[in-house]
Design a protein around this nucleic acid. Structure first.
Lengths: 176, 176
DNA sequence: TAGACTATTGGCTGCCAATTCAATAGTGTG
DNA sequence: CACACTATTGAATTGGCAGCCAATAGTCTA
């Protein structure tokens, strides 16, 4: 609470006034952050693009150093979940929402013929496991192993019956 | 320190006496735990088995509920690494040791013809990413998604040029 | 057995964090 | 402007935890 107060240039008591306990603060903070990040990764505004394009952008953003903190956020939340049932619940919810959103894209891609899989949700889960695996290393100093660099793309392409490279380089995204 | 002392039926001061700071205690505890668990997952005593058999047992143990706490251990350590440079270092070291040990098995398997890959280390890294991804969920209440159940096996088989199922059911391990 | 060395205790100190609450400042509305 | 309501502060309370140290108990050896 102290650190939140400091970051806002405000006194700790004020934080307590708006959030009964840290547990509540933590849950709302995570929910809010995770939701915002999800919108940034998979913007509703892009819903009318081809599914292949949507997924490509999603994976590209995941790999972007700009989203390094997202990995840390989830790592943090998943660890804290251990002794915080409420947070655990929220984490599970956010996981489900993300999974459903990404599965919808894949399912749509199967419909349009972009992707080939007989189980969109399982394909989605596999992709997410790899993402979470790579997120595990968010707090590492050392350079990432070369084998991890394009891993999400490779796995996603395999899962969705795309040719090698079928999700890479096809998009032209803005630089920051 | 209090909780460690309690667990040992001893007074907190004693812990301070043997471990200068919490940071040191944490690092040594993690190093010790990670090392022991690695020995249990990939016992040196099995070094003379076929590489396929060694890997199969390793993956089977990873999936075993007996090793649920191992996932929690790594999750915890990876999170705490964020603001603890020393622990971060140890985590990186332990990661390397595990990677090297598993890579050695794979490399040997390539030599004997058990496995097919032109880059044993990369294959190893991919397998470890999936393991770490699944470990992310160690603190989840809910039932694991069906797509995750055999995922490590499937991925390992693909990475190592084995037929589907080539790492499953081949071993007869003791029940606990 | 004496003496040295180790293991362990008990208690103290200081720090920092969460939470509460009464008091004050600020804002908008009739 | 007066009043009600909201936002914010300051200070106090509580509790826990790391780190330190002097005192005591235990152990081993010459």
């Amino acid at each position: 609470m102290k650190s939140v107060a400091d970051a806002l240039g405000v006194r700790p008591g004020l934080i307590s006034h708006y959030f009964a306990t840290i547990d509540v603060l933590l849950c709302e903070a995570f929910e809010s952050a995770a939701s915002q990040e999800r919108e940034a990764l998979l913007p509703p505004a892009e819903r009318d693009l081809e599914p292949r394009e949507q997924l490509a952008r999603f994976l590209q953003r995941i790999n972007d150093p700009q989203f390094l903190n997202l990995g840390r956020l989830w790592l943090n939340a998943r660890h804290l979940s251990r002794y915080r049932p409420r947070l655990r619940q929220i984490v599970a919810e956010q996981e489900t929402i993300t999974r459903d959103a990404l599965t919808a894209v894949i399912r749509e891609g199967v419909r349009t013929g972009d992707f080939i899989t007989d189980d969109p949700e399982s394909a989605c889960v596999v992709i997410l496991v790899v993402i979470d695996g790579l997120d595990s290393y968010s707090n590492d100093d050392s350079a990432p192993h070369p084998a991890t660099v394009d891993l999400v793309f490779t796995i996603a392409e395999r899962e969705l019956g795309l040719p090698q490279g079928g999700l890479r380089g096809s998009t032209r995204m803005q630089e920051h």
